[in-house]
Amino acid sequence: MRFITTQPTQALELLNNSFSQKQSQQLAARVRQEVGDKPGDQVQRALWLVTQRSPTSEEIDRGVDLLQDLANNEQLSPGAAFDIFCLLALNLNEFIFLD
């Protein structure tokens, strides 16, 4: 039985690894297909999928803010920005840890 540990190398893996990239892109594609292109809808759906609960309006706003930041300040396309949000979603403590 593997003993639970928490290490920065795990974070590095989940952030930078090609598997994580692929999974977040697939999550993003699925969400786009299910709810369309509006940032609020996309954030809501992505959060719902990883946490299995309805996100609060604050949580949705927070995600939309990130998408806007990435689009405005970093000149990312909406698609690339949402891919990053999905990477964030897969790195959430709430996704990784069960109560």
């Binding site: 190398t9 590095l12 893996e13 952030l15 930078n16 690894n17 090609s18 994580s20 990239q21």
Partner: peptide, 8 residues
């Protein structure tokens, strides 16, 4: 240490 590079 693996995964120190940012993804493409």
């Amino acid at each position: 240490i693996l995964n120190l590079d940012l993804p493409p």
